[in-house]
């Protein structure tokens, strides 16, 4: 059983949800990111998603865009992120998922990217701009036990069957249209959408985009197995200059709700 499967299985047995916490690698610095990963785990995060900074992050809102600019300005590269992941792996078994735009993989080399994921100890990869129809470009290079996490949107409709048929890991359900950190509220049919995904897939479901408060968590938790929090954490990192205690406290509050 993979580390991701184990986390969902353990939480399911105890009737709890998995909190998936996102941070941008290299924001405010890579050294700080490493400490923040441990803080997120202490705060109760079951899976940690590491953003790879990209110059043109199409799926992200202003908070994560600004974090990416910061990470790029201080020289963060995929190579350095893999080095950090290797160091983290010597200290903890918390599942680590990389979220990278496709051009970052192309720049690194797709085959080399997945090999590096395996060596460093990555547990899954999310590529927000590589939809199902384009994934055959990377499938020859996928390595065992590092799934490409599928995304499902309220607009996916009849596509769900196709995009989830051979999926592994967990399903990343998008709670609202728009970019990450959206303030517009969840999609009007979010509950129906989550139930529809549940009917189509046996994988654990996690929901993200615009989840910032305990209230948001309580509203969506009944429909899913995991809750993804990104911009709210990145904002806290930005405000506190990457203070691990502050971030740990935020995650603790969210995971207790």
């Amino acid at each position: 059983m993979s580390r991701i499967e184990k986390v969902f299985e353990t939480k399911r047995k105890s009737g709890e949800k998995v909190l998936i916490a996102y941070l941008m690698a290299g924001h405010p610095t890579l050294e700080a990111s490493e400490e923040l990963v441990y803080a997120l785990e202490r705060g109760g995060a079951g899976i940690i998603e590491l953003g790879v900074p990209f110059s043109d992050p199409l799926a992200d809102g202003p908070v994560i865009q600004a974090a990416a600019v910061c990470a790029l300005e201080n020289g963060t590269t995929l190579r350095k992120i893999f080095d950090m992941v290797s160091r983290i792996r010597q200290k903890t078994q918390v599942p680590l998922v990389l979220m990278a735009y496709y051009n970052s993989l192309l720049g690194y080399g797709v085959e080399a990217f997945f090999d590096a994921c395996k060596i460093a100890g990555i547990d899954g990869v999310i590529i927000p701009d590589l939809p199902y129809e384009e994934q055959q470009e990377v499938t020859p290079y996928l390595v065992e036990n590092i799934p490409l996490i599928p995304l499902a949107a309220p607009t996916s409709g009849s596509r769900l069957q196709k995009i989830l048929a051979h999926a592994r890991g967990f399903v990343y359900c998008i709670s609202s249209l728009g970019v990450t950190g959206t303030q517009d509220g969840f999609h009007r049919e979010v509950e129906g959408f989550l139930s529809q995904v549940r009917a189509v897939s046996d994988l654990p479901l996690a929901v993200g985009f615009g989840i910032a408060s305990s209230q948001d968590v309580r509203r969506l938790a009944p429909y899913v197995d995991g809750i993804i929090v990104g911009s709210a954490i990145v904002r806290k990192i930005e405000e506190t200059g990457g203070n691990p205690q502050a971030v740990e406290a935020l995650v603790k509050e969210l995971s207790d709700s």
């Binding site: 939809p131 129809e133 384009e134 949107a153 309220p154």
Partner: peptide
């Protein structure tokens, strides 16, 4: 190709 978020595919 179509390298866009899933939200736009439909």
């Amino acid at each position: 190709g179509q390298y866009v978020p899933e939200t736009l595919m439909q």
